[in-house]
C-alpha cells in the first residue's frame, strides 16, 4: 500500500505491506532507529513517538494508519544543532543508563509537558507509567522531566524563543 507520511518535518512516500507496524516502518524503511522494540504486549513504551502531537506506542499502530499524518520521533527534537531541553535534562540529571528506554521516555515526556508544563512528581510518575525503564529506578527520569518543564516554561515566557522550543508534530 502507498502511504505518505510526514516524519520530523520531512515528507516520505512509501510502499508498505498492510501489516507493517509503524515502529518497523520508522526503523526499517526510514532507518530512524531511535524508537525501539522492547515487548510484544504494548507494555514498555520503548517505541513511543508522537502522532499528530500525541504520544503513541508505535508498535501498536499500523504504518498505514499514519498515512497523511505527522510523526515526530526523538531524531526530530534537536533544532539547529541545539538539543531539546528534555534531551539536555536527561543528560544532566543522569536519567539514562543503557539508553534503550530513553527515546520513548523523552517522547512521552514531550507530550506530557505540552499538556502539563509544570507537573508534580506524582503527575510525572503517572504520565510516564506507560514507559518501562529497567535500569534507572525512575528517580532521575522524574527529576529530568520536571527540570525540562521549568526550562521550557521559562522559554515560553520569552516570546523571542517561543517558536524554537515548543516541539510539535510538524
Amino acid at each position: 500500500m502507498q502511504i505518505r507520511v510526514t516524519v520530523n518535518g520531512r515528507v516520505y512516500e512509501s510502499d508498505v505491506e498492510p501489516r507493517t507496524l509503524l515502529v518497523y516502518y520508522l526503523r526499517e524503511h526510514l532507518r530512524l532507529t531511535g524508537a525501539h522494540v522492547g515487548c510484544d504486549t504494548t507494555t514498555c513504551g520503548a517505541c513511543t513517538v508522537l502522532l499528530n502531537g500525541k504520544a503513541v506506542k508505535s508498535c501498536t499502530v499500523l504504518a498505514v494508519q499514519a498515512n497523511g499524518q505527522e510523526i515526530l520521533t526523538v531524531e526530530g527534537l534537536e533544532r539547529d544543532g541545539e538539543l531539546h531541553p528534555l534531551q539536555k535534562a536527561f543528560w544532566e540529571e543522569h536519567a539514562l543508563q543503557c539508553g534503550y528506554c530513553t527515546p520513548g521516555m523523552i517522547m512521552t515526556a514531550c507530550e506530557l509537558l505540552e499538556r502539563n508544563p509544570l507537573p508534580t512528581e506524582e503527575e510525572v510518575r503517572k504520565g510516564i507509567s506507560g514507559n518501562v525503564c529497567r535500569c534507572t529506578g525512575y528517580v532521575n527520569i522524574v527529576k529530568a522531566i520536571q527540570s525540562a518543564g521549568r526550562v521550557l516554561a521559562a522559554q515560553k515566557m520569552d516570546p523571542h524563543n517561543q517558536s524554537e522550543v515548543v516541539p510539535s508534530g510538524n
Partner: peptide, 12 residues
C-alpha cells in the same frame, strides 16, 4: 555515552 542515546543514535 549519553549524547548518542538522547539523540536516538545508540547502535543496538
Amino acid at each position: 555515552e549519553d549524547p548518542r542515546f538522547i539523540r536516538g543514535q545508540g547502535r543496538y
